[in-house]
Design a protein around this nucleic acid. Sequence first.
DNA 1: TATTCTTTTGGGAGCGCTCCCAAAAATAGT
DNA 2: ACTATTTTTGGGAGCGCTCCCAAAAGAATA
Lengths: 340, 340
Amino acid sequence: MPPTLEEVAQIAGVSRSTVSRVINNHPNVRAETRERVWQAIQECGYQPHAVARSLVTNRTRIVGMVIPETVTTLFTDPFFPLLLQGATEACNTHHYQLLLSLFNDPTGQEKTYQRVMRSGYVDGVIVASASLQDPVIPSLLRDGIPFVSVGRHPDEQINYVDVDNVNGARMAVEHLIQLGHRRIGTITGPLDMISGQDRLRGYRQALAAHDLPIEEELIVEGDFRESGGVAGMQRLLSASPSAVFVASDIMALGALKALRQENLRVPQDISLVGFDDIPLASALEPPLTTVRQPVRRMGALAVEMLLDLIEHPGAGPRRIVLPTQLVIRKSCREKEVMSS
Amino acid sequence: MPPTLEEVAQIAGVSRSTVSRVINNHPNVRAETRERVWQAIQECGYQPHAVARSLVTNRTRIVGMVIPETVTTLFTDPFFPLLLQGATEACNTHHYQLLLSLFNDPTGQEKTYQRVMRSGYVDGVIVASASLQDPVIPSLLRDGIPFVSVGRHPDEQINYVDVDNVNGARMAVEHLIQLGHRRIGTITGPLDMISGQDRLRGYRQALAAHDLPIEEELIVEGDFRESGGVAGMQRLLSASPSAVFVASDIMALGALKALRQENLRVPQDISLVGFDDIPLASALEPPLTTVRQPVRRMGALAVEMLLDLIEHPGAGPRRIVLPTQLVIRKSCREKEVMSS
DNA sequence: TATTCTTTTGGGAGCGCTCCCAAAAATAGT
DNA sequence: ACTATTTTTGGGAGCGCTCCCAAAAGAATA
């Protein structure tokens, strides 16, 4: 059985309270006592028992990340590695541990919620990219677990970190309009997700601002997956757009593949703008014009917001909306004036 | 403050021991008492406090997965999603939680080890694909934490799950020899990893079994990364191999890209065999002949071995070595006899 | 009805730690 | 040397649960 505070105390000739003070770097311990305790710790290989400590302090220094996606999707969508990098970095800075719960099928999510998030092992939770119907947020509200949503939420009481999806989409479509395009299509994100809705809103706002008609046949709902981009572009082509705003880079990749299958060149035959600016965007042929969102920073800020919430629960709602920027590469060109 | 056993007991008119018996499904509780307790639990929204329970039982029902790679590599190497799928599945089957520790730079690994693996939050650990120099295994041995290695380890006392890398590599090279190749190169895995060493051994054994000379200029050390495949093939081409055994599919992808850069066709100009059979292998052009290893199954078996170790610590060492199989697709062809 | 046996239930104690209050020791001032 | 003040240290108690022993209640038998 591993040594306890009491054993360290015995070796050092002090009480367990003194050992606890040393370990937790409390003041008012004599220097020679402190040194003797450290030596005793070294001698017996004492390691603090985090579970016992947690029972007393009501803290685990672990935060959970709920990603309502299966392992396969988690590893396919390049948004999540960046989010996790940012979250991991912020956790490490604050001496917290990120607990990532994985499941292989959607029914596993409820079980892992019960087993981990609700069981007291985490001080708080980050919910990444849930749809509005996802039951995890109502559950967290019911159970009084501090949490932050990555992605805006319409409920006033929910804390979140997001980017300005509306404005980002608007900039993308504005760019296409400035290039002379008038028949601009879009492949949206899932419309049960706020980011899906917001990017569509930005698309509509840009068209409306230029008195351009919003034609429903130019709007195809996607799903933030490559296959959704392929299918979306296949459907959209029948409406003959000269340019398309795709609500994510991974769908833009799919759209690009669909265009290649139809022997349509980007940007010669059709212009393309994505959203995200994942590393792949610059590596595509042609390099993709896209809306950059700082995913890593979102992850880090979500963690910091959550830690602040854990430490100061009473304070008011917290929200951070980060700006986006349009990164102009080579997947758009001016709309040629048709000779008649 | 969330309700405790005592509060449930008060509502139900029983003692906390009776409530505990009901929650843990112990026998010898009257049916009507049991029902009354469940109603009280429902009424007050009681949720078991896992930390308190863990302090008593010395169990958390969490197992840690240590992957000595940064987040970037974790998400780039397709081996890990499959491993995590298998591990996640086995954990869920046994009502355990997999805790995946992430870090962004190699120095973060030691900190996360201290913070989580050594602190009592996990009942055991799975170590995935560590190199022989990685300090995590000596630390686990020193701290007496039950663990299983994914990948063979030369230390007799270490439990592991692996595939037969030697035999897998030998089959791959045998295949090339049967097709008439005599000048067979290899891009190895990292040679500070057992699987890297074992696959090289299989390569050598196959050549030796056919009295073919082992020429060091035909052996290039790789790193299980796509970029390592690119660089490895670029170096190897100067030795004019007619076929190459690549110790992982992701490096085979890199090798393929390098060959394309040199306008060399697979299999017309050079034959290629990989190892892993990741989903990409069949999607390549040409579809890759490769050695299939059951990564998902490795993950699941590693978890099951660990849970068995946790429950029965005294039993002897455990080892599982899974067979591999050669999957013949279209990246190899017969060596043409050179007309002289 | 009484006794014996079985089933059901209650509560003390402890898991390993932190916190808080008070005791003990050390230091400063007269 | 004595007194007052400050610093250092010790130990009781409890965090929420499980386990174990024993008490209480119920059932069966004579």
